[in-house]
Write a protein that binds this DNA or RNA. Structure first.
Lengths: 153, 153
DNA sequence: ATGTTTGCAAACAATTTGCATTTTT
DNA sequence: AAAAATGCAAATTGTTTGCAAACAT
């Protein structure tokens, strides 16, 4: 993880009279020290490996805090859980493509899509503020080799 | 609501050995007899006006049934509730634009967006199967008149 | 008779919250 | 000493489920 992220985190906390704690540090690493999209539960597990005192309540509280300060984005992947996007700070406008078979998540950021959305918004009389795009399909590996799912047994 | 929808419903039910009941009929009307996007709770309320015996459990069971048979689409509007899209049968590919102020939902279907998404999918090596797009912004009325929210008092 | 559907109440699961205690400043 | 943060356990909330009774074929 980029050092400037930690600085940003620290500053965001300070700006609202909040403190940096071992638990918050662990959660920061658990969620932003990876490019993986994780659920609150997975973040709890990862954070506890760093600091076993981290509780589920603190994970939820801290994730909310991070989302509010713009360090993190909540992500709806069309599954049962809410995911968190660790690549948001770096690429605030990216979207997701999910393979229907292996469920792997690919990210993309395409100017053309943005332009297209703006145009549609304008046609509707809107000034677009944000958008969310998620696509599902069959990945390259599946198409090429006929299988993209890692065998677990 | 189009009569062919009722026929489709009836057939979908029959095809899996399921029966048409007063409750299911009431729920059908409650969810497809409007162009409004409703939550399970709103659908329950509307259905009970038609048939007071409709219970919450049956609403959930029936909505699941309708989604499974392709009559209805679950919709994530980025709110706390799951919404159901009554306009899915008519326009299976439409997307949503939501006003940040009045929260009104506008629908659109734009070929250009589809083409753009396909192109991106191809670039990623994917064969796109589905996609979900949601935009938020400020609506025409807000921009023109400075307000789009209905005053409640 | 047999299979389906129902309402009810209980169960569930992700998330939030109240509170006494601990930690930090 | 004051303010903030924590863990725990209980509460909340949208949704699902087990089951006995009601209904349809």
């Amino acid at each position: 993880m980029n050092e400037s992220v930690r600085t940003k985190y620290r500053e965001a906390l300070q700006s609202q009279g909040a403190r940096m704690t071992p638990q918050r540090a662990a959660i920061l690493e658990a969620v932003l020290g990876t490019t993986e999209h994780r659920t609150a539960d997975e973040i709890l597990e990862a954070a506890q490996k760093i600091d076993p005192t981290v509780s589920r309540a603190t994970v939820y509280r801290t994730l909310t805090l991070m989302v509010e300060t713009g360090l993190l984005r909540r992500l709806d992947l069309g599954r049962d859980f809410t995911y968190f996007d660790p690549n948001y700070l770096e690429k605030p406008n990216h979207s997701h493509m999910i393979c229907l078979d292996c469920q792997k998540i690919f990210e993309f950021e395409e100017k053309e899509l943005d332009v297209c959305e703006d145009k549609i918004a304008r046609q509707l009389g809107f000034e677009r503020a944000s958008s969310f795009v998620r696509m599902e399909g069959r990945c390259q590996r599946l198409k090429k080799t006929g299988s993209c799912v890692e065998k677990t047994a």
